[in-house]
């Protein structure tokens, strides 16, 4: 089962390698990992989507907490969070296919970032599963290149994840 884990870490060099190293040596599978700064410049936030049963996820959480530079870890329960991922995809788009692709973009909410005589580059920011569906429908046109950011997520509702609040 897929789990979305948010990790607040000290914004030090080397933290990311400690975290990714921990996943590989403990045999935890990462589906995606996204890292970026937060409103507090001393803290970075890492969002990890990992695969595993409850026991594995419990171990992931505990092992992450053992890293000195990890400030806080939270695994989101189902529907407890809002999540987005950005995908940029370059597809074959000869003139006769352009309007078809435009229709797909319109339906899915993708935007055109760039266009040439033979290709189109589209961006879509949405949930993981919707990106997958978009990929499925665009795939027959011939994907030339694709990049995804990995999921980022925050808690749904007025509660929030902060280094200061109790665990």
């Amino acid at each position: 089962m897929k789990h979305t884990i948010s990790v607040l870490v000290e914004n030090h060099s080397g933290v990311l390698s400690r975290i990714s190293g921990l996943f590989s040596r403990r045999g935890f599978n990462i589906e995606s990992l996204a890292v970026g700064p937060t409103h507090d410049p001393s803290i970075s936030r890492i969002t990890i989507v990992a695969d595993g049963d409850d026991h594995t996820v419990e171990q992931i959480e505990k092992q992450l907490n053992k890293l000195i530079e990890v400030i806080k870890v939270k695994t989101f329960g189902r529907d407890e969070f809002v999540a987005r991922e950005l995908m940029i995809v370059k597809v074959n788009a000869p003139a006769e296919k352009r309007s078809e692709i435009m229709t797909i973009a319109e339906i899915t909410g993708a935007k055109v970032m760039d266009i040439t005589l033979s290709t189109m580059t589209l961006e879509l920011c949405d949930r993981y599963d919707r990106l997958c569906r978009f990929e499925n429908v665009i795939e027959p046109y011939g994907i030339l290149e694709m990049a995804r950011t990995g999921t980022v997520a925050v808690e749904r509702g007025s509660d929030y994840f902060s280094p200061k609040k109790g665990s």
Binding site: H55, Q59, K62, Q63, N65, K66
Partner: peptide
């Protein structure tokens, strides 16, 4: 003392 050892 190490929570990760409990249940591992």
């Amino acid at each position: 003392i190490d929570p990760a050892e409990i249940g591992k």
